[in-house]
């Protein structure tokens, strides 16, 4: 048992995934998913949101199928996959890559749990690999939604919609599962370095979040810490890229 989970906390089981709620979670929140993916866009963005809004851990997600890894912070073990929140947003983040074998059950469990929590919408933050990223000061962001009614809203916020293509990973399944449950979900996918942590892409995706839900964000502190993040997240980006290759094989040409 880690420092996050105490005895007798309420546990919910979804197949081989367990969600332990550390705090009561209000209904109607906007959930933001930032699990490890291309360029660690979601991880960096979610970490920034957790720090900026001083979000507290509200739930822990565990599975016996996860590798036997515990993250250590200040000498104490903590769970790697957690949900942070306040009275308006939930942020789902992980400090370890999600094994390919766990993606389906994790996405199904998160979708079921978020639906029980009656979230108003999920926004998923991800990256797409682009060789042109090196030439971009501000990376390009495209959006994908899990129902047609959201597309108009996205266009009204001047965010480009990815008309045709495909998406893969936890967020792709999560959006599909949420669609089946009638819960809105939007993925914001930023042009990113495929094999390097990309704080610039994370900042671009957060700028899109800010426009989408009118969330006031000062992104300068994120960009100021970009070098530090690129260095500190180098191990996680390598492991995530290896997992991603396992899912997709050679990466898509559609995004390049």
């Amino acid at each position: 048992m880690s420092s996050d989970v105490k005895p007798n906390m309420p546990e919910k089981k979804y197949g081989n995934i367990t969600v332990t709620e550390l705090e009561p979670i209000p209904k109607g929140l906007i959930a933001i998913e930032g699990l490890p993916d291309i360029g660690l866009v979601g991880v960096i963005a979610s970490s920034f949101l957790i720090d900026t809004f001083n979000l507290k851990p509200v739930a822990v997600i565990k599975s016996p199928l996860m590798p036997p890894v515990q993250v250590v912070h200040m000498g104490v073990i903590v769970e790697p996959i957690k949900v942070f929140g306040n009275d308006s947003i939930l942020v789902i983040s992980s400090e370890v890559p999600i094994p390919a074998t766990l993606i389906t059950s994790l996405a199904t469990a998160i979708a079921e749990w978020l639906t029980e929590k009656r979230i108003s919408m999920l926004i998923s933050l991800n990256g797409y690999p682009s060789q042109k990223r090196i030439d971009q000061i501000e990376p390009h962001v495209v959006a994908v939604a899990n129902n047609l009614s959201l597309i108009e809203m996205i266009k009204q916020k001047n965010i480009e919609v990815l008309d045709d293509g495909f998406i893969s990973g936890v967020f792709a399944l999560l959006m599909s599962e949420l669609a089946a449950k009638g819960t809105n979900a939007i993925a914001l996918i930023a042009q990113a370095f495929e094999n390097y942590p990309d704080p610039g892409a994370a900042a671009a995706s957060l700028k899109a979040v800010s426009g989408l839900i009118n969330l006031k964000l000062d992104l300068k502190p994120l960009l100021d810490k970009a070098d530090e993040m690129r260095l500190n997240m180098s191990n996680l980006v390598q492991q995530t890229a290896a997992q991603k290759q396992g899912i997709e094989g050679p990466l898509t040409t559609m995004y390049r």
């Binding site: 990223r133 090196i134 030439d135 971009q136 000061i137 370095f193 970009a226 070098d227 690129r230």
Partner: peptide
């Protein structure tokens, strides 16, 4: 045979 550029923190 070797050309190098440095942009946005990446050496290519």
């Amino acid at each position: 045979d070797v050309k190098a550029t440095f942009k946005n923190g990446i050496l290519l």
